[in-house]
Protein backbone atom coordinates (compact mmCIF):
# COMPACT_ATOMS: atom_id res chain seq x y z
CA UNK A 1 0.00 0.00 0.00
CA UNK A 2 1.44 3.34 -0.93
CA UNK A 3 2.44 5.47 1.98
CA UNK A 4 2.09 9.21 2.19
CA UNK A 5 4.13 11.23 4.59
CA UNK A 6 1.75 13.24 6.64
CA UNK A 7 3.10 15.87 8.94
CA UNK A 8 0.98 16.35 12.02
CA UNK A 9 -1.41 19.22 11.76
CA UNK A 10 -0.67 22.35 13.69
CA UNK A 11 -3.96 21.98 15.52
CA UNK A 12 -3.32 18.57 17.01
CA UNK A 13 -3.27 18.13 20.75
CA UNK A 14 -2.72 15.20 23.08
CA UNK A 15 -5.69 12.91 23.42
CA UNK A 16 -6.21 13.86 27.05
CA UNK A 17 -6.81 17.47 26.05
CA UNK A 18 -9.74 16.61 23.82
CA UNK A 19 -13.11 16.70 25.56
CA UNK A 20 -14.52 13.20 25.93
CA UNK A 21 -17.99 14.34 24.89
CA UNK A 22 -16.80 14.84 21.32
CA UNK A 23 -18.35 11.89 19.51
CA UNK A 24 -21.85 12.94 20.38
CA UNK A 25 -23.01 12.08 16.88
CA UNK A 26 -21.46 8.69 16.54
CA UNK A 27 -21.91 7.39 13.03
CA UNK A 28 -23.16 3.93 12.32
CA UNK A 29 -20.20 1.60 11.77
CA UNK A 30 -19.61 0.51 8.22
CA UNK A 31 -20.24 -3.11 7.41
CA UNK A 32 -16.95 -3.57 5.67
CA UNK A 33 -14.86 -1.81 8.26
CA UNK A 34 -14.11 -4.67 10.60
CA UNK A 35 -10.42 -5.42 10.55
CA UNK A 36 -10.05 -6.15 14.23
CA UNK A 37 -8.98 -9.60 15.48
CA UNK A 38 -11.69 -12.19 15.11
CA UNK A 39 -13.22 -10.30 12.24
CA UNK A 40 -15.49 -12.03 9.86
CA UNK A 41 -14.11 -13.06 6.47
CA UNK A 42 -13.67 -10.39 3.84
CA UNK A 43 -16.91 -10.41 1.82
CA UNK A 44 -14.89 -9.51 -1.28
CA UNK A 45 -12.44 -12.37 -0.95
CA UNK A 46 -13.89 -14.42 -3.79
CA UNK A 47 -14.00 -11.49 -6.19
CA UNK A 48 -10.49 -10.47 -5.19
CA UNK A 49 -9.13 -13.97 -5.79
CA UNK A 50 -10.77 -14.18 -9.17
CA UNK A 51 -9.52 -10.73 -10.13
CA UNK A 52 -6.02 -11.71 -9.08
CA UNK A 53 -6.14 -14.71 -11.33
CA UNK A 54 -6.93 -12.46 -14.28
CA UNK A 55 -10.72 -12.32 -14.26
CA UNK A 56 -11.36 -8.73 -15.28
CA UNK A 57 -15.11 -9.11 -14.79
CA UNK A 58 -14.53 -9.84 -11.12
CA UNK A 59 -12.55 -6.65 -10.77
CA UNK A 60 -15.27 -4.77 -12.64
CA UNK A 61 -17.71 -5.99 -10.00
CA UNK A 62 -15.46 -4.59 -7.28
CA UNK A 63 -15.23 -1.28 -9.13
CA UNK A 64 -18.99 -1.13 -9.44
CA UNK A 65 -19.43 -1.93 -5.78
CA UNK A 66 -17.01 0.63 -4.37
CA UNK A 67 -17.19 3.49 -6.84
CA UNK A 68 -19.98 5.40 -5.04
CA UNK A 69 -18.28 5.22 -1.63
CA UNK A 70 -14.84 6.09 -2.92
CA UNK A 71 -16.27 8.80 -5.11
CA UNK A 72 -17.82 10.35 -2.01
CA UNK A 73 -14.46 10.41 -0.27
CA UNK A 74 -12.60 11.97 -3.20
CA UNK A 75 -15.35 14.41 -4.13
CA UNK A 76 -15.86 15.80 -0.64
CA UNK A 77 -12.13 16.29 -0.26
CA UNK A 78 -11.63 18.00 -3.60
CA UNK A 79 -15.05 19.68 -4.12
CA UNK A 80 -14.47 19.13 -7.80
CA UNK A 81 -16.36 16.52 -9.76
CA UNK A 82 -13.97 16.38 -12.74
CA UNK A 83 -10.93 15.93 -10.54
CA UNK A 84 -12.78 13.29 -8.57
CA UNK A 85 -13.50 11.37 -11.74
CA UNK A 86 -9.87 11.40 -12.86
CA UNK A 87 -8.48 10.53 -9.44
CA UNK A 88 -10.89 7.65 -9.03
CA UNK A 89 -10.02 6.23 -12.44
CA UNK A 90 -6.37 6.30 -11.40
CA UNK A 91 -7.21 4.71 -8.04
CA UNK A 92 -8.86 1.69 -9.62
CA UNK A 93 -6.18 1.38 -12.28
CA UNK A 94 -3.49 1.40 -9.63
CA UNK A 95 -5.42 -1.03 -7.44
CA UNK A 96 -5.76 -3.43 -10.35
CA UNK A 97 -2.04 -3.36 -11.03
CA UNK A 98 -1.23 -3.76 -7.33
CA UNK A 99 -3.79 -6.47 -6.70
CA UNK A 100 -1.21 -9.25 -6.83
CA UNK A 101 0.48 -7.70 -3.81
CA UNK A 102 -2.72 -7.58 -1.77
CA UNK A 103 -2.16 -10.11 1.01
CA UNK A 104 -5.54 -9.88 2.72
CA UNK A 105 -4.17 -8.52 6.01
CA UNK A 106 -6.96 -5.98 5.87
CA UNK A 107 -10.23 -6.14 4.02
CA UNK A 108 -10.21 -5.19 0.37
CA UNK A 109 -12.41 -2.26 1.29
CA UNK A 110 -9.85 -0.87 3.75
CA UNK A 111 -7.04 -1.49 1.30
CA UNK A 112 -8.60 0.30 -1.64
CA UNK A 113 -9.90 3.04 0.62
CA UNK A 114 -6.32 3.65 1.75
CA UNK A 115 -5.14 3.86 -1.86
CA UNK A 116 -7.90 6.36 -2.65
CA UNK A 117 -7.10 8.44 0.42
CA UNK A 118 -3.38 8.57 -0.30
CA UNK A 119 -3.83 9.41 -3.97
CA UNK A 120 -6.29 12.16 -3.10
CA UNK A 121 -3.94 13.60 -0.50
CA UNK A 122 -1.10 13.54 -3.03
CA UNK A 123 -3.32 15.27 -5.57
CA UNK A 124 -4.36 17.97 -3.11
CA UNK A 125 -0.76 18.65 -2.18
CA UNK A 126 0.11 19.25 -5.83
CA UNK A 127 -3.03 21.19 -6.66
CA UNK A 128 -3.07 24.95 -6.53
CA UNK A 129 -4.45 26.43 -3.38
CA UNK A 130 -7.04 28.40 -5.32
CA UNK A 131 -9.26 26.15 -7.32
CA UNK A 132 -12.79 26.64 -8.59
CA UNK A 133 -15.45 24.46 -7.11
CA UNK A 134 -17.21 22.09 -9.45
CA UNK A 135 -20.11 20.69 -7.51
CA UNK A 136 -22.69 18.00 -8.04
CA UNK A 137 -26.36 18.79 -7.88
CA UNK A 138 -27.94 18.39 -4.49
CA UNK A 139 -30.39 15.54 -4.30
CA UNK A 140 -33.80 17.05 -3.57
CA UNK A 141 -34.50 14.37 -0.99
CA UNK A 142 -32.43 16.57 1.32
CA UNK A 143 -35.63 18.41 2.12
CA UNK A 144 -36.85 15.35 3.96
CA UNK A 145 -33.69 14.96 5.98
CA UNK A 146 -34.24 15.57 9.70
CA UNK A 147 -30.97 17.51 9.94
CA UNK A 148 -32.01 19.80 7.11
CA UNK A 149 -35.48 20.29 8.57
CA UNK A 150 -34.02 21.15 11.94
CA UNK A 151 -31.39 23.48 10.46
CA UNK A 152 -33.99 25.37 8.44
CA UNK A 153 -36.40 25.56 11.32
CA UNK A 154 -34.04 27.01 13.85
CA UNK A 155 -31.67 29.07 11.71
CA UNK A 156 -32.92 32.02 9.73
CA UNK A 157 -29.85 32.22 7.46
CA UNK A 158 -30.19 28.58 6.48
CA UNK A 159 -33.89 29.02 5.88
CA UNK A 160 -33.33 32.08 3.75
CA UNK A 161 -30.48 30.66 1.73
CA UNK A 162 -31.41 28.49 -1.17
CA UNK A 163 -29.92 25.05 -1.54
CA UNK A 164 -27.26 26.19 -3.95
CA UNK A 165 -26.02 28.91 -1.61
CA UNK A 166 -25.95 26.50 1.30
CA UNK A 167 -23.99 24.01 -0.77
CA UNK A 168 -21.49 26.67 -1.83
CA UNK A 169 -20.94 27.79 1.74
CA UNK A 170 -20.46 24.28 3.05
CA UNK A 171 -17.95 23.44 0.33
CA UNK A 172 -16.04 26.66 0.76
CA UNK A 173 -15.85 26.02 4.49
CA UNK A 174 -14.56 22.50 3.84
CA UNK A 175 -11.92 23.77 1.44
CA UNK A 176 -10.66 26.22 4.06
CA UNK A 177 -9.77 23.33 6.34
CA UNK A 178 -6.32 21.82 6.17
CA UNK A 179 -6.10 18.62 4.15
CA UNK A 180 -5.73 16.49 7.27
CA UNK A 181 -8.72 18.07 8.96
CA UNK A 182 -10.81 17.84 5.81
CA UNK A 183 -10.00 14.16 5.51
CA UNK A 184 -11.27 13.24 8.96
CA UNK A 185 -14.38 15.42 8.60
CA UNK A 186 -15.16 13.75 5.27
CA UNK A 187 -14.70 10.29 6.68
CA UNK A 188 -16.45 10.82 10.01
CA UNK A 189 -19.19 13.37 9.41
CA UNK A 190 -20.08 12.78 5.78
CA UNK A 191 -19.21 9.14 5.25
CA UNK A 192 -20.11 8.02 8.79
CA UNK A 193 -17.00 5.97 9.37
CA UNK A 194 -16.02 5.01 12.92
CA UNK A 195 -12.90 6.46 14.51
CA UNK A 196 -11.11 3.12 14.53
CA UNK A 197 -11.55 2.64 10.81
CA UNK A 198 -10.38 6.16 10.04
CA UNK A 199 -7.33 5.61 12.22
CA UNK A 200 -6.54 2.36 10.44
CA UNK A 201 -6.83 3.86 6.97
CA UNK A 202 -4.80 6.97 7.79
CA UNK A 203 -2.22 5.11 9.86
CA UNK A 204 -2.75 7.33 12.91
CA UNK A 205 -4.11 6.74 16.40
CA UNK A 206 -7.75 7.10 17.28
CA UNK A 207 -6.76 9.88 19.63
CA UNK A 208 -5.28 11.81 16.74
CA UNK A 209 -8.47 11.28 14.77
CA UNK A 210 -10.53 12.71 17.64
CA UNK A 211 -8.11 15.57 18.04
CA UNK A 212 -8.28 16.50 14.37
CA UNK A 213 -12.06 16.28 14.42
CA UNK A 214 -12.26 18.52 17.44
CA UNK A 215 -10.22 21.27 15.83
CA UNK A 216 -11.84 20.84 12.44
CA UNK A 217 -15.29 21.30 13.97
CA UNK A 218 -14.12 24.36 15.82
CA UNK A 219 -12.84 25.89 12.59
CA UNK A 220 -16.04 25.01 10.76
CA UNK A 221 -18.05 26.70 13.48
CA UNK A 222 -16.12 29.88 12.79
CA UNK A 223 -16.48 29.59 9.02
CA UNK A 224 -20.22 28.91 9.23
CA UNK A 225 -20.91 31.28 12.09
CA UNK A 226 -23.65 33.19 10.30
CA UNK A 227 -25.48 29.95 9.47
CA UNK A 228 -25.78 29.06 13.12
CA UNK A 229 -27.39 32.22 14.46
Amino acid sequence: MPEVDRAPSSGEVPVAAVPQALPALSPAPLEEAEDRPGRRPDPDLDLVERARSGDTHAFDALVEKYTPKLYGLVYHMTSNREDSYDILQDVFAKAYRALKRFRGKSSFYTWIYSIATNMTLNFLKKRNRRRNLSLNDVDLSIENDPDFIEATSKSDPVREANLSELQQRLNMAMQKLSVDHRTVVTMFDIQAMPHAEIARILGISEGTVRSRLFYAHRQLQAYLEDFRK
Partner: peptide, 13 residues
Protein backbone atom coordinates in the same frame (compact mmCIF):
# COMPACT_ATOMS: atom_id res chain seq x y z
CA UNK B 1 -21.89 22.17 12.43
CA UNK B 2 -21.79 18.41 12.13
CA UNK B 3 -25.43 18.37 11.09
CA UNK B 4 -24.77 20.98 8.44
CA UNK B 5 -21.71 19.21 7.08
CA UNK B 6 -23.60 15.95 6.95
CA UNK B 7 -25.94 17.51 4.43
CA UNK B 8 -23.09 17.34 1.93
CA UNK B 9 -23.84 13.67 1.44
CA UNK B 10 -26.79 14.75 -0.69
CA UNK B 11 -24.35 16.03 -3.32
CA UNK B 12 -24.39 13.06 -5.63
CA UNK B 13 -23.64 12.80 -9.33
Amino acid sequence: VQRLIRLKRYETP
